[in-house]
Simulated scan of single mutants.
Amino acid sequence: MGNIRFFRRKPLDFNPETTLEFIPAKAVNVDEFLFSPVLAGLWKQHELWDGTYTLDDLLDINELLEVKQENQRRAVEAAERKAGE
């Protein structure tokens, strides 16, 4: 039957860059993965608990946020390369 992934989700086809010039602060009392759509302004905090969204919704929105961040990073990198020509 082959490999079965958790929720049968396909992995992203890129690894996010980790060339930071600083060590980012991390929340120690809050689940950052769970709250990331709230921090992005896409969901309200109570929607995490009231059944508005499913676990699949949470996985989808986090994937989209990661893809958005990667695309923004690539766009900035391409603009910097073009400016350097």
Score class of each variant (00 low, 15 high):
Leu59Met: 14
Thr54Ala: 03
Met1Arg: 12
Leu65Cys: 03
Glu77Met: 12
Gln72Gly: 00
Arg9Gln: 11
Glu32Tyr: 03
Leu42Thr: 05
Asp60Met: 03
Asn62Gln: 07
Gly51Glu: 03
Ala78Ser: 14
Val67Thr: 00
Ile61Ser: 04
Lys26Gly: 05
His46Met: 06
Phe7Gln: 08
Ile61His: 06
Ser36Asp: 05
Ile4Val: 04
Lys82Cys: 03
Glu70Lys: 00
Met1Cys: 12
Glu77Cys: 00
Glu77Lys: 13
Leu34Asp: 00
Phe33Asp: 07
Lys82Trp: 12
Ala79Ser: 10
Lys10Arg: 15
Arg74Ile: 01
Ala75Phe: 02
Leu12Asn: 09
Glu70Trp: 10
Leu20Tyr: 15
Ser36Ile: 01
Arg81Pro: 02
Asp50Gly: 07
Glu63Gly: 00
Gln45Asn: 06
Gln45His: 01
Thr19Trp: 07
Pro24Ile: 06
Phe7Pro: 00
Phe14Val: 01
Thr18Gly: 11
Phe14Lys: 04
Leu39Val: 05
Gly84Ile: 02
Thr52Leu: 01
Asn15Val: 15
Gln69Ile: 03
Leu58Arg: 03
Arg5Asn: 13
Arg81Asn: 12
Leu48His: 06
Leu58Ser: 07
Gln69Ser: 13
Ala75Gln: 10
Trp49Gly: 06
Asp60Trp: 05
Gly41Val: 08
Arg74Leu: 15
Asp13Gly: 05
Ala78Met: 09
Arg9Met: 04
Arg8Trp: 06
Val28Gly: 09
Val30Ile: 15
Leu64Met: 13
Asp56Ile: 03
Trp43Ile: 09
Gly84His: 11
Phe14Pro: 09
Asn3Ile: 08
Lys44Val: 03
Arg73Glu: 11
Glu85His: 08
Gly51Asp: 08
Leu58Cys: 04
